[in-house]
Nucleic acid binder design. Structure first.
Lengths: 203, 203
DNA sequence: CACTAAAACGGAGGTGCCTCCGTTTATTTA
DNA sequence: TAAATAAACGGAGGCACCTCCGTTTTAGTG
């Protein structure tokens, strides 16, 4: 279980967001941070009052910022997707292109792992709120695309596949049954996939 | 809003159901009946305590019979589908084949009407519990099939369509936006469909 | 019938949800 | 800097959820 380890300032949604007062901002960020932990450990049904408590604010404050549980879940979810995509850029900077891709996919597996328990509620949220779905899936596949293209351009992986193929291959992770060894199996899947991608590369 | 008007004894699931004690049986039936009304009027989030109260039992009794809200919703849902299918047989007995089909489709519209508000929760339930989905959709399309076949056999409607086509045509009802005139529009759709079906019939 | 085991009843109680509103704090204006 | 105003804070209160368990009822047996 990898810590997400993200600083609070990640929550900078620039648009049309009326300038928040300093304290409000602080509290909001803290709430999101705590909620992310609680959702990860206890599922989306984690107690909102407990979240408020741990964030050191009253329950009223939580509700002012996030009128429903779904709002909070959505913000946390977006933040995590954001983190995942940001990691892609970072990995691309710090590693050879093929290693970056592999590391990112492993991280993707980690990410999915934390989401497995939440499947049904998340599915509801994603079918209800279709912009959320298109926004985030767009973000994620965008991140993947640039990693794949970079690796292909550097000759580290074969050039005759594109990102959506890889994404599709990774799809098996979702649908795989939730066995205890799911994690390992998914890890192997990623390695296997990388071998396939490296095979026949120019470099 | 048509009353469903079903007697309690409709809940006779013969299989493997350990013989219930008389009082338990009574209470259970009453609970389902009241729940059906409450879900229809207040949505699936109707208060369980209120349901128990109106059924004249304690909350504990409700929970013993239906350990979760979903259990109760599922039973009510199945019962309603059952009623819908039963109506098909009845209509087939009491009316000419084409009229039976038309009346049943109108009733189907009524039925969907009561479910419109519940769309998201029901969808979750139906995707989560896939046997529920296949059971009920099988039942419903079975009912429709026999009505269509009977009408075709009697020469009251054209013989070159099958039940799944009609079902598909009715599908528009689901997806139509929830405008105030939805009900009328759906009624007209059914009439239109029937005209189409009658056109070119032998009889 | 009376007795008894098994099963059902039902409500008290602990917890969480969410609203409402009086209090406190930050920002703006003079 | 002080006063005024706007905004955020936070907890009390009311309601619903669900569990637990002592009490009551039923169905079977001598």
């Amino acid at each position: 279980m990898p810590k997400q380890e993200m600083t609070a300032e990640a929550t900078r949604d620039a648009p049309a967001q009326k300038r928040l007062r300093a304290d409000a901002r602080r509290n909001r960020d803290k709430l999101v941070e705590v909620a992310a932990q609680m959702f990860a450990s206890d599922g989306v049904d984690a107690s909102l009052e407990e979240i408020a408590r741990r964030a050191g604010v009253g329950i009223g404050t939580l509700y002012r910022h996030f009128p429903t549980r779904e709002h909070l879940v959505e913000v946390v979810y977006r933040r995590e997707v954001e983190g995942l995509c940001h990691a892609a850029e970072e990995l691309a900077r710090d590693h050879p292109a093929d290693a970056a891709l592999e590391l990112w996919m492993q991280r993707f597996v980690d990410y999915i792992a934390t989401k497995r328990g939440l499947a049904t509620s998340l599915r509801l949220l994603l079918t209800t709120n279709s912009t959320l779905f298109s926004d985030t899936s767009g973000r994620v596949s965008g991140a993947m695309r640039s990693l794949v293209q970079a690796a292909a351009a550097a000759g580290k992986i074969r050039a005759d596949v594109d990102a959506s193929d890889v994404m599709h291959a990774l799809g098996g992770i979702y649908s795989a049954p939730n066995t205890p060894d799911w994690r390992e199996r998914s890890g192997r899947l990623v390695k296997l996939l990388m071998d396939g991608l490296r095979f026949g590369a120019r470099g």
